[in-house]
Structure formats: structure tokens, C-alpha cells
Nucleic acid binder design. Structure first.
Lengths: 296, 296
DNA sequence: TGTTCTTGTGACTTCACCTCACATGAGACG
DNA sequence: CGTCTCATGTGAGGTGAAGTCACAAGAACA
């Protein structure tokens, strides 16, 4: 690949505008400069190319043959770039890139996305799983969903769209209808590695404490832990929204109910004007969250 | 035709170089700037396009999908312009545009051009007829041929490549073998409108004067006057080189010979570096003129 | 002949772009 | 692990390319 040797590009742009519009004055208007600037640019281009590009008297300048050919080439080239940029922008506008807690995506978001797609058939939603604090400077998302107490100031919008409640859950056959914390007596305690302090927080929030567990099991993700709870491996602590469907379906039981946490589910938007797709998603999300049942 | 909306072109160029070369440092070298400049340009382009174009850690930056597509489009566009410019330049280099005295072209230059074409098969010579003083600012020629005493200073080269001799000529049957100026007694005098003082100059140069003419005839061009002389319409005054072939062939007679004029034939080159075709023409012309016979 | 329209151009000005120097962050290598 | 290197990010500040302004020039039209 050899080094490019192109004349000054601003001169090319000025010349292309002149060729397209026929007069320097008009071209200057389009470029938001004075006619003198265009005149100089074209002259410098002729010098740099080494060929005359214009000819004729001042008040009726025409292009030389070389000028015509260059202008045709430039128009095509600029058109091409312009079209590519428009394509990129519209492709981007038609896509919503969302950074989301993995479990929330699987247990809450994805099951409900159908109505969003119905409302916005042109929009594709791309969900990327992420637990780290949202950092729009490092990774470019159109929006992020996090469970947190406080969203660090980042210049953008942050909306708490859903309260969080958590509580212990286990397979119904293990609990066996016993009421209160005694329901969990003798059951192994399930933990998630990223949030090992979760049980302690719950005990602080409720003032309750579970019977001593005969065993503790750690899982890499909340999602795996919930699968384990459903499979009867012990008692897990989960946000309500992740298990609402399982409780409804009788796959999990929550004998002591759920308690609200200080943390909430936030929709976090990057700084600057939100793109239309993100705004649409925000509206849909708030509407959808508004109709979510709250635990007893 | 709608107004163009393109991002800053220098940013596009920087981005294209980066995309092509893979690293900002290398791109900066190609563009003869520092890496910082390229970094800033690419950042400003991302801002102006509204899309991220690069991603990944600093030391191993990659293009995003959007970046790849834009880069491909830009490469194509720049290639196209570059190729057009190269075509224009080579087409121009293969052509020699010569501004020449019409009669000189017809009577001297064109008959000899064959050997020039033999020596430079790739070069096309375009001859434009012109009598006005050479003015490269108004009209773009690669070279001009003029008959003059002094070439006005114009910043370029001017080479006297051929001395000029002039003298009266007429059809041989009119002259009828008589010697000296008496040969022309009773013949009409032929003039050219652009140079009505020619006869007076000749008389001054030679100290001779022709017998009173019964008639004067004016022609628009020297070329027409020579045709008239050959046709026997009278006695004309002509530079030697224009009639050498006619005298040789016996179509014209020059009973009093030719006298050198202060004016010479000049090859005049425009200011600035001569293009190769013009240099080749100059060399050929000097060589060709060196072997021209001088009148007695 | 004067008026208007358009481009060319000398003199001056300014801000876009560049450079410099340092910071940052990720590998690589003892 | 600490340090070295390599590539890019960035704040501060300098400068020349490119623009502005005002006037000149040249052609057309009334």
C-alpha cells in the first residue's frame, strides 16, 4: 500500500461545490465562506494539480475538460462517502445497545421485550450482559440497567424504574408448608460469589435470621443459584422480580415474603442527547415497570 | 441538488490513513504530523459522525463495524480521486499545447513534425494559431512560437531558435529572369493587413526600393498573400522560411534574395519548470532549426 | 457611459490544527 | 512484581493555512 498523494482536501471540496453550483459566489454561500476564499482555494488547487481547471472570462467561468473530469470524480467520491455516513447513522439509529444485568435480562427483560418490538418494529435491541458499574466512557451503550443504591454522577440521566425486594426462596417440597424462618431449617444456604454479603444485608433489613445452615454453596451467578434453588439444592436469596414467575408457577416458595432494599433498578442513559431509540425504550420500560405486581 | 453535509475532510483523511495503516503513529508519519494530531482528528470525527469508530485498548485499537464500513468507503473514494488526478496529469503530460504563428505552423513546423512524432511517439502536439503576443497568464500553453525582436519579460525561458530573413518573391514567369529590383517592375504589390509597414522595413533594411507598383493588394493573412504570389497576382514580401520550399520547387522566385531582420523566431516557454513534453519539443526544435539552410 | 454582476487579489486577521510534554494503561521481560 | 516499552489520550500553548475585508478588474446589459 503506497502513501496517498492528494491535494489539500478543502480545496477539493471548494472546487467540487463550484463545479456543482456553477458560480463561486453560490459555492461560497454553501460552504459558509466568502467568494474570495473559494477563489483562492480553486487557484491553489490548480497550482497543486498542475493543470488549469477553469477557463473563460470572470463573469462566466467554465470548467476545462480536466476540470469537468475531476469534478465528476469528486462528486462521485463525495456522494459515496455521504451515502455511507447516512447509512451508518440510520443503521445506528435503528439499533438499541443495552448493557444489562444478566439475570435481569433473562428473568425480566427478555420475556417482556415482545411488546417493545410490537411497538417499534424497526428497532433492534442488542443486550449485552454486564455487572460492572455503567461506564459510558469505556464502552458505548445507548442505555444500561443496573441494580444499585446510587448511580454515580456521569452527566446523563438515571431513572429508578423499579423498586427491589429480596427474600429467601426454596423449592416448595423442601419448605413443606412450614411458616416463617423455620421453613428453612436444615436447608443448605446458597450464595453468589459477586454478592456474598447478600444474606447479611437481608438479615439487617428484616431483623430476622435464618436457622443455622448445615452447608453453604457458592455460585458464580445469581442465575445459576436460582436454577439450584428450583432444583431443591437449598435456600437462595433473590430479588423478587427474578423469581416472581417461578413462585407464580409453584416452582419456588417464599415463606417469609420479600422486603424492600435501598437499592433500586435504574435505567441509566449516557450523557448528551438521548437517541430516539433510547428514549423510546425508556418510555416503554417505565410503562412496563408500572404494571409490575409488588410482593406482599 | 442539495447541499452537502460532510464531516471535516482532514478528519476523514486522518481516519482513512489510520484505518489503512492500523496504527495512529504510522498514519501520523504518512501525514507528516504527530500522533496526537491524528488522535484528535479521529476523536473529532467520531464526535461529528455521532458514532464510535474505534474500540479496544489503546495499544491495540481496532475499528468498530461502523469504522470498517466508513474506512472502506473512504478508501474507495480517495482511490477514485487519486486515480482521476493521475489520469488527468498523464493525459496532460502526453500533450503539448503550442501557440504558433499560423503561417509558421503551416509552412515550417507541420511539415517537419513527423520527425518529432517519430522521436516521441507518446506525445500529441496540439497547435493553436495565434498572432497576439504570448500571454501565458490569459491562455495556457506549454510553449509558443513568435517572430519578434524582443520577448517581453514574463518569467519564463525565451530562445531565439531561428534567424529571420525577408525578401520579395513572385511567380517565376512574372519575374522572367530579370535581375535586381527591376525584376518586379510593373507588378502589383501584395500586402498583409497585420503588417502593412513590412515593405517600408524591408526598404530600410536593404537600402533598396522597388519600382512603383501599378496596384496594391491587401490580404488578411500572410498565408493568403503567399498563395496569391504563387498564383502570379504580384510581388509579396515574405520571411525566407515560409517560401524556401516554394523557391526550391520553382513555384516562386526571389531575384534580390533575402536580408536578415532584427526580429527572430522565438520559442517562448511559460514561467516555472517546463514540463517534459515542452523540454523535448525545445530540444527537437533547436536541433531541427540548426539544420535549416540560410538564404544567400 | 454608467450600473451591475462576478471573480481576482493585496493586506491583515484568526482560529483550526498542530506540537510539545506528560499521563495513562497494557504487555513484555527479566 | 517492578520496571520498561509501546501506543494512544490530553492540557496548554504556538502558528500558519485559510478566511475576511475592501477594492480592482472585466464583461454584459441597459
Amino acid at each position: 500500500m503506497t502513501k496517498r498523494s492528494l491535494p489539500p482536501l478543502t480545496a477539493l471540496r471548494a472546487f467540487e461545490a463550484f463545479a456543482r453550483l456553477g458560480r463561486m459566489t453560490t459555492a461560497a454561500d454553501e460552504l459558509c465562506v466568502t467568494h474570495g476564499a473559494v477563489s483562492r482555494q480553486i487557484r491553489s488547487l490548480e497550482l497543486s494539480v498542475g493543470l488549469p481547471l477553469t477557463e473563460g472570462p470572470r463573469h462566466r467561468l467554465k470548467l476545462t475538460d480536466a476540470g469537468e473530469r475531476l469534478a465528476a470524480s469528486l462528486s462521485g467520491a463525495f456522494d459515496r462517502v455521504e451515502r455511507t455516513l447516512a447509512d451508518l447513522r440510520s443503521a445506528d439509529a435503528a439499533e438499541l445497545h443495552l448493557s444489562c444485568l444478566g439475570t435481569f435480562a433473562m428473568r425480566w427483560l427478555i420475556p417482556r421485550l415482545g411488546t417493545f418490538h410490537d411497538q417499534h418494529p424497526g428497532l433492534r435491541v442488542r443486550v449485552t450482559e454486564s455487572f460492572a458499574p455503567a461506564d459510558f466512557a469505556r464502552e458505548r451503550y445507548d442505555a444500561a440497567i443496573r441494580l444499585t443504591e446510587h448511580v454515580p454522577a456521569h452527566g446523563g440521566e438515571a431513572i429508578a424504574f423499579l423498586d427491589n425486594f429480596h427474600g429467601p426462596v426454596a423449592a416448595p417440597q423442601l419448605v413443606n408448608g412450614r411458616p416463617g424462618v423455620k421453613a428453612f431449617a436444615g436447608l443448605p444456604r446458597l450464595h453468589t460469589r459477586p454478592h456474598l454479603q447478600a444474606w447479611a444485608e437481608w438479615e439487617r433489613h428484616t431483623g430476622l435470621s435464618l436457622p443455622e445452615a448445615p452447608q453453604n454453596r457458592e455460585f458464580e451467578h445469581l442465575f445459576y443459584m436460582l436454577e439450584a434453588a428450583v432444583a431443591g439444592l437449598g435456600v437462595g436469596l433473590s430479588p423478587f422480580v427474578y423469581v416472581a414467575a417461578d413462585i407464580e408457577a409453584g416452582r419456588l416458595a417464599a415463606p417469609v415474603g420479600f422486603v424492600r432494599t435501598p437499592a433500586q433498578f435504574y435505567l441509566i442513559l449516557p450523557p448528551g442527547p438521548a437517541k430516539p431509540a433510547a428514549a423510546a425504550f425508556r418510555d416503554w420500560l417505565l410503562d412496563e415497570a408500572g404494571s409490575v405486581p409488588v410482593p406482599s
